[in-house]
């Protein structure tokens, strides 16, 4: 019998892409997919420990009022789970230690970065070393971008992929590392799984709007050293069917949208690991 796999999609406090992210998990074959409000985690009726795949969707946690996902990160770091036995953060730490998969999209990526879970160099998951800041354009933008995939990245989610075309929808997506040493390590360890690129998905680009936010080295998504935690600014859950593609009325496209491949990779990995 096949191993049962389950996914949790966290919502609440301004998250807003939970529905389509859960839909992606279902299409990818997860046996159980729960959209869980963060209050259910805080009051202890749900626990991260009961799941294999943690989804942190896009949105505006607490309005991104203190900078994207800042107040959300503060809550995870400091809020107690009812009963006072542990903080919510402890469940996250246990989840990572158990080698389970985490995917953060857009606001979820911002959250992982501000928590210090990405890139999580040397297995340190509570110290922030990179960030995502306001787009160079100074504005929120919704536009589709081409993405180059590093074939040598340890990232579980991008396995077997070459290039993608996905929408970005953010005002704070410019990737900035704390220093060149950090950037060099990301490169050396192939943690830069995704870069904004030319239309052939081959060369990373700094040209606006192909690189929609001015991200350093065109970085669109990074993973941790185990490849099991992955965050990206573009929205794969917004391209699950060909009719999501901006040019589906003029191009021959496969029925299934490209964004689903990340979720399929996650499911395939969890089935055998």
């Amino acid at each position: 019998m096949q191993k049962k796999i389950s996914a949790i999609v966290i919502t609440g406090n301004g998250t807003n892409c939970e529905m389509e992210m859960a839909h992606a998990c279902r299409l990818a074959g997860f046996d159980q997919v729960d959209i869980v409000h963060i209050s259910e985690l805080l009051c202890g009726t749900k626990r991260l420990d009961d799941y294999d795949f943690l989804n942190l969707p896009g949105g505006f946690l607490d309005g991104d009022d203190l900078g994207s996902a800042k107040a959300g990160a503060n809550r995870i770091l400091h809020a107690d789970v009812a009963g006072g036995q542990e903080r919510l953060y402890d469940q996250f730490a246990r989840f990572i230690a158990a080698g389970k998969l985490i995917l953060g999209i857009c606001n979820g990526f911002q959250l992982l970065v501000k928590l210090g879970m990405l890139p999580g160099l040397d297995g340190v998951y509570d110290r922030q070393t990179v960030t995502l800041v306001f787009n160079d354009s100074g504005r929120f933008e919704d536009r589709w971008v081409y993405l180059h995939v590093d074939p040598d990245s340890p990232c579980i989610f991008t396995r077997g992929l070459h290039g993608l075309y996905l929408p970005v929808r953010h005002g704070e997506g410019k990737f900035v590392p704390q220093d060149t040493a950090t950037l060099e390590r990301l490169k050396r360890q192939k943690l830069i799984a995704l870069q904004y690129s030319d239309a052939l998905c081959q060369e990373a680009t700094m040209d606006y709007p192909a690189n929609p936010n001015g991200a350093v080295d065109g970085i669109a998504g990074i993973c941790n050293e185990t490849g099991r935690i992955f965050g990206l600014m573009p929205h794969p859950e917004a391209y699950l069917h060909r009719t999501n593609h901006p040019r589906w009325t003029r191009e021959e496209l496969p029925e299934e949208g490209m964004g689903l491949s990340f979720f399929r990779n996650a499911a395939a990995f969890l089935r055998i690991n």
């Binding site: 807003n16 892409c17 529905m19 504005r139 929120f140 919704d142 536009r143 917004a238 699950l240 999501n244």
Partner: peptide, 10 residues
């Protein structure tokens, strides 16, 4: 138009 999210909810 680009400054409004027209694709959320999938």
């Amino acid at each position: 138009v680009r400054q409004y999210d027209h694709e959320v909810q999938g």
